[in-house]
């Protein structure tokens, strides 16, 4: 089964691959998945005045998992927290034309966004 062109594009040219300073108060880090399941996504957001000004990812997983997280960072950049929380995995499935066996990759990407936001918010709350 061949990958969709969009998955291949994100895999070949990943957007926002890398890391942000996880110790910064402005940065929220979400790590989801597990090595034994074959997928681990790390998604980070940098927030200023409730708006996501930067996002980075690193992913251990198949091409669809890499593409899902790459797309997620592309989308959340520039969004408010409320807008980013509203991203649904089905949006990712549709954009990347993921086949049924790869839907879990999009679920993971949605969870990674939410986990990063949660981390950011808990940092803010404990300030």
């Amino acid at each position: 089964m061949a990958y969709s062109n969009k998955v291949v594009d994100h895999f070949d040219n990943p957007r926002n691959m890398g890391s942000l300073d996880k110790s910064s108060d402005e940065v929220g880090t979400g790590i989801v998945g597990a090595p034994e399941c074959g997928d681990v996504m790390k998604l980070q957001i940098q927030v200023e005045n409730d708006r996501i000004v930067d996002a980075k990812f690193k992913t251990f997983g198949c091409g669809s998992a890499i593409a899902s997280s790459s797309l997620a960072t592309e989308w959340v950049k520039g969004m408010t927290i409320a807008e980013a929380v509203a991203i649904k995995n089905t949006d990712i499935v549709e954009e990347l034309a993921l086949p049924p066996v790869k839907i879990h990759c999009s679920v993971l990407a949605e969870e990674a966004i939410k986990a990063a936001i949660e981390d950011y918010q808990s940092k803010q709350a404990s300030k």
Binding site: M17, I31, P35, M41, K42, K58, T59, F60, I66
Partner: peptide, 8 residues
């Protein structure tokens, strides 16, 4: 590996 959070 550059892309892998586990490698990092």
């Amino acid at each position: 590996r550059d892309m892998s959070p586990l490698w990092e």
